[in-house]
């Protein structure tokens, strides 16, 4: 699936839907989207990743960047990540910092 990133913000909840492969060639697009979202001071960030097929460390770095900019009070949700993506998060210790859900709102 080709890469796309779309975002919307409703009542301080930012939702970013990521489709395709998040590698070093596509991560800058997500980074840019995250930077726009940060300006809006959301209280929750929801990453819709059901159709995210691949995520390399370039993608992890954007998640870390988002978390660092937004601060620990802003909860980060991952909606329906694929098994291999969860495994990568676990391996790198990022799993502790995100909340995995089947749908949002829960």
């Amino acid at each position: 699936m080709s890469f796309s990133v779309k975002s919307e913000v409703n009542e301080n909840v930012a939702v970013i839907t990521i489709t395709g492969a998040l590698d070093s060639s596509t991560a800058p697009q997500l980074h840019e989207e995250v930077q726009k979202i940060i300006q809006l001071n959301p209280t929750e960030l929801v990453l819709n990743v059901e159709n995210l097929d691949f995520m390399a460390s370039a993608g992890l770095r954007v998640i870390i960047f988002a978390k660092q900019k937004l601060g620990s009070a802003v909860k980060l949700f991952l909606v329906k990540p694929q098994e291999q993506v969860v495994e990568t998060l676990r391996m790198t210790g990022l799993l502790f910092s995100v909340t995995i859900v089947d749908k949002y709102p829960e």
């Binding site: 460390s57 998640i63 620990s72 210790g93």
Partner: peptide, 25 residues
């Protein structure tokens, strides 16, 4: 990154070294 760094909350974590770690693991 060592175990201690990986256990840090994302807000306090240095960015880097993750790619090579993923290659090895």
């Amino acid at each position: 990154p060592g175990e201690d760094e990986l256990a840090l909350p994302l807000e306090e974590r240095p960015i880097g070294g993750l790619g090579i770690m993923l290659a090895k693991e």
